[in-house]
Lab assay of single mutants.
Amino acid sequence: MDVFMKGLSKAKEGVVAAAEKTKQGVAEAAGKTKEGVLYVGSKTKEGVVHGVATVAEKTKEQVTNVGGAVVTGVTAVAQKTVEGAGSIAAATGFVKKDQLGKNEEGAPQEGILEDMPVDPDNEAYEMPSEEGYQDYEPEA
């Protein structure tokens, strides 16, 4: 019985440690998101679009440190934060509304985080759909 109880105690310690790591990862992701939003706020009209992409990228980098179902929630929060940063930029006159959601080359930025393969159960990952990809044929 002692062996059984000791095993359960060790398992509990492992769960607590994993929860603490997840909590730490979420806190880091939130900190990076805040950094990115402050970065966007300090940019001029020309830099705002690039700044919004930076927020998304920093958040995406930190999301990889967070495991399990938390990833889905962090990704949703990050996307809403990026959308909010863009709205703030438009409201303050840093950028025109028609410039939001495009990178410096004018290509749409939507789907940055949505296409990231995420499995809350950590069982399997699927690649994003290939609808947006084109076949590449090298020139002879």
Rank of each mutant, 00 (worst) to 15 (best):
Y39N: 15
P117V: 11
Q79K: 15
K6A: 09
G31N: 15
N103D: 14
H50Y: 08
G93R: 02
T33E: 00
K96L: 08
G86S: 13
D98M: 15
V48I: 09
E110N: 15
L113S: 05
A140T: 07
A78G: 09
V37T: 02
G25V: 15
A69D: 02
M5T: 05
E57A: 08
G7E: 13
E28F: 06
F94A: 07
F4I: 14
V63C: 11
M116C: 06
Q62E: 12
A90M: 03
S129Q: 09
V3N: 06
A30V: 08
Q62L: 07
A76T: 09
A53S: 12
D2N: 11
A107V: 01
G51C: 03
K32W: 10
E130Q: 03
E28T: 13
G68M: 08
E57L: 08
T92F: 08
V70C: 01
K43N: 00
A78R: 13
Q109N: 03
P108A: 11
Q79N: 11
K96R: 06
P138N: 12
D98T: 07
M1L: 00
E110L: 11
L113I: 04
G106M: 06
V15K: 00
E28L: 11
P117D: 05
K102H: 05
G132A: 12
I88N: 07
E114A: 02
V55G: 06
A53R: 00
F4D: 01
V70Y: 02
Q79M: 10
Y125T: 10
V118Q: 03
T92I: 10
V48H: 00
P117N: 06
G51E: 03
V15Q: 00
N65S: 08
G73T: 05
E105F: 09
K43T: 06
K80W: 08
K45D: 00
Y133P: 04
E13D: 08
A78D: 03
N103Y: 13
Q134C: 06
T72Q: 09
S87I: 15
A140M: 09
N122I: 05
M1H: 00
F94N: 14
G47Y: 12
A78C: 14
K21V: 05
V66M: 05
K10N: 15
K43D: 00
G86R: 11
T33M: 10
D115K: 11
S9M: 15
T22G: 03
E57K: 14
G67Q: 12
D119M: 13
G101D: 06
T92S: 13
T44A: 10
E35F: 07
A69V: 08
E139Y: 10
G132Q: 02
G67I: 06
K60A: 10
A91R: 09
A89Q: 06
L8F: 13
Q109S: 14
E139D: 14
P120H: 12
V55R: 00
A29H: 01
E123L: 13
G41R: 08
T81V: 02
V95I: 10
D2E: 01
A17T: 03
F4W: 03
V74A: 14
T54I: 13
E28G: 05
G7L: 01
V77F: 11
V63G: 06
E28P: 01
G25C: 08
D115L: 10
A124K: 06
E110C: 08
V118M: 07
Q79E: 14
G67P: 02
V49F: 05
T92K: 06
V26H: 00
L8Y: 00
K23E: 01
V3W: 03
Y133W: 12
E35D: 08
V95A: 15
I88R: 08
S9P: 01
V70P: 00
E20A: 01
E46I: 00
V49T: 09
V74L: 11
V118A: 15
A11M: 15
V49D: 01
E126P: 10
G84N: 12
Q109T: 03
D119F: 15
T59Y: 14
P117G: 09
V82F: 06
A78K: 10
V16W: 09
K32V: 12
K80I: 06
K45A: 03
P108S: 04
A85N: 02
I88Q: 01
V52E: 00
E13W: 13
E35N: 07
A19S: 03
A124H: 09
K96I: 03
V49Y: 03
L113A: 10
E13A: 05
E139I: 12
S129D: 10
E137L: 05
P138Q: 08
K45M: 11
V95C: 03
T33Q: 09
P128E: 08
K23V: 03
T72W: 14
